Simulated assay, not measured.
Amino acid sequence: MFISFEGIDGSGKSTQARVLAESLRARGLDVVLTREPGGSPGAEEIRRLVLEGDPDRWSAQTEILLFTAARRDHLERVIEPALAAGKVVICDRFADSTRMYQGLSRGDLRALVDQLHSLMIAREPDLTILIDIDPAVGLARAKGRQGSEERFEDFGLGLQQKMRAGFLDLAREFAPRFAVIDGARTSEIIAQDVLETALAKL
């Protein structure tokens, strides 16, 4: 089974992905926890290119190509082999993030994202868990991390608000595989909801 986590920056999705992996392992399941962009050596190199540096470093079109290349390598080297071996794959972000951050953020490029996805990836998660949170809260959390990978956070609150609305639209568009989880509660309560959602799908 392939589970992805989505959400705006600072939503807590990375924490929840890790907690779910630990919970499923405790139940005897073989789990691979990975992330995008990245997850394989080649994709991690591309991650550094797209997440660091000036916000205007790349055009949205170039980013789409870079993210798709990273995703293809990740799919070939990590995701598909793990699924073929009967493992549960939990991925912190997948194609829905590209649909939002590149397809929506700086122009209407969603059709281009979907076209490349169809040609080069052609796989969707079995379950996508969207951690929904107020954009101002998420951005404050994300900026508080003070890491080097803040290129998208540097676009500001307006982008985060647009992304939240876009993710909720995606959840409606792909309703059968999406579960929207309220991220405004304690981490423990969110984790319980996430676990129950995953177990029901499993």
Rank of each mutant, 00 (worst) to 15 (best):
F2V: 02
F5A: 15
G7F: 01
G7A: 07
G7I: 00
I8S: 12
I8K: 05
A17F: 00
R18Q: 14
E22P: 06
E22I: 06
R25M: 15
R25W: 05
G28R: 00
D30Y: 04
V31C: 09
R35E: 08
G38D: 06
G39Q: 07
G42Y: 06
A43T: 01
E44L: 08
E45C: 08
R47E: 01
L49V: 00
L49H: 00
L49S: 01
G53M: 01
D54H: 15
R57A: 14
W58N: 03
W58D: 04
S59Y: 07
A60W: 01
E63Y: 10
I64D: 08
L65Q: 11
T68Y: 04
H74F: 08
L75V: 01
E76N: 14
I79G: 13
E80N: 13
A82M: 14
L83F: 02
A85C: 11
K87P: 04
K87T: 00
V89N: 03
I90R: 14
R93P: 01
A95H: 14
S97I: 07
R99H: 12
M100R: 12
Y101P: 11
Q102E: 09
Q102D: 11
S105C: 09
S105P: 02
D108P: 09
A111N: 11
L112H: 03
D114C: 07
H117D: 14
S118V: 08
S118A: 15
L119D: 10
L119W: 13
I121R: 08
I121W: 08
I121G: 12
A122V: 00
R123E: 10
P125Q: 11
D126G: 10
D126E: 06
L127P: 04
T128C: 14
I129W: 05
I129N: 00
I131C: 13
I131A: 11
D132S: 15
I133F: 02
I133S: 07
I133M: 09
I133H: 03
D134T: 14
A140G: 06
R141W: 06
G144C: 03
R145M: 04
G147R: 03
E149A: 13
E149P: 08
R151L: 03
F152Q: 02
D154N: 15
F155E: 07
L157S: 08
L159Q: 02
Q161H: 05
A165I: 04
A165Q: 14
R172L: 06
R172D: 02
E173L: 12
F174G: 12
F174R: 14
A175G: 04
P176W: 07
R177Q: 13
F178E: 12
A179R: 15
I181K: 15
T186L: 05
S187P: 13
S187N: 13
L195D: 10
L199V: 15
L199K: 09
K201E: 09
L202G: 03
